[in-house]
Design a protein around this nucleic acid. Structure first.
Lengths: 210, 210
DNA sequence: TTTTGATTTAAACAAATGATTTAATCAATT
DNA sequence: AATTGATTAAATCATTTGTTTAAATCAAAA
């Protein structure tokens, strides 16, 4: 009745096309998506897609930009919280992105496979490097490193580990489900467990001196 | 002069097509690959592709089966070495796959994105679950868990962590390169560092009792 | 040399697909 | 009710793309 984000009928035609495009693109990727798939999913006539968005590529670019932007935006917010410790930030990041990807499990593979070669320079355009490297989080990390509280030589390793622990399960899902004989419910349950486990693992990893 | 695997000119036409298909499919994925791309890459007439392999889909299935099989095959060998400890196995797995994916960096995204929904049941067909769960490695892991030497509740978490540490950097490469301002050489250098780091991290992670 | 079967080539076909056109329909305003 | 502009539907176009056809070429056997 009242839900704007749930009830498709309250979306404008333009909005319906965009939501359908998001769904189909994220599920099948750019090349495997037919404009007719999007039109059908949106419940609109094919011509409308070009009427509102000019071309398939243009529509895709909009979806991709929004998808990556929302990822980067929340990352920016989480990394620059002045009021939380390093450890708390890790907790919040883990929790946020596990919930985020549990809701839209296709986003990791979608982003990674479509940005394979970063051909249109989207990553550079969004200045992800500054977002991460100039963040409060990394300032805190470097301070802790100076005090000797943290011993992972290169902060990029720390980042690879953190993101890998969070994102990889969603990417390797078909393999992992096959190996562990898991259904969707069991998989999601494990991801919820990881909200508590990953921060602990990150903590111990970081303390290794070698 | 003598190298079979290096010198394309010594490959049969069928072999040239297969190698070209492997390269293009792994780089661009099934849907984005044109049969003409493969023909051009192989330096052969387009009709030969269908002459030797019947259809694009059939050729793709062959490449995909070989790719996943070689992954599973080496995994099977490494997991079932009777003469090495748990710790040594982790070392060998890390080292092997980092070298393997450094040589063919497209394989992780290729496998993961094309097996998204595991639609043709390839994963089940290869019985990856038995390969992993019935392995010497997991027997050793469960024994160590009984002795209390290992404290990660679910061995699937251990697997997610191990594979994530190894594979995720290759999948998130465009992001990570962007964030860290890395070139290919620096990226590969970090991956070589991880050969030593990941086993240590896995060790410490596993000891956490919580 | 002739023959025979395998291999290769150039050309063409048919279906799929992104995009456009043209006219009909709808909703709001006068 | 009539008008007007926005929205929608159906048909069509032009190109791409997987596949096939038919003939030419090559290599080995007879």
């Amino acid at each position: 009745m009242k839900g704007k984000l749930v009830d498709k009928k309250e979306l404008s035609t333009e909005g319906k096309i965009k939501e359908a495009a998001r769904k189909v693109f994220q599920q099948k990727g750019y090349a495997a998506t037919r404009t007719r798939d999007i039109a059908e999913e949106a419940g609109i006539n094919l011509a409308l897609l070009n009427y509102y968005f000019r071309s398939k590529k243009n529509l895709f670019d909009i979806i991709m930009l929004e998808t990556v932007s929302s990822f980067v935006q929340s990352m920016t917010t989480l990394l620059n919280n002045e009021d939380t410790s390093l450890e708390k930030k890790v907790e919040l990041i883990v929790s946020h992105y596990i919930d985020f990807f549990t809701q839209d499990p296709n986003i990791p593979i979608f982003m990674m496979s479509e940005l394979r070669d970063n051909s249109d320079g989207l990553i550079d355009k969004l200045q992800i490097n500054q977002v991460v490297m100039d963040s409060v989080f990394f300032k805190q990390y470097r301070e802790a490193a100076e005090k000797g509280e943290v011993a992972v030589s290169n902060p990029m390793h720390f980042l690879m580990n953190l993101l890998g622990q969070i994102i990889f399960p969603f990417i390797g899902k078909p393999f992992l489900k096959g190996i562990g004989g898991l259904n969707d419910k069991q998989f999601n349950s494990m991801m919820q467990e990881r909200k508590k486990l990953i921060p602990v693992w990150m903590e111990t990893m970081v303390e290794v001196t070698r």
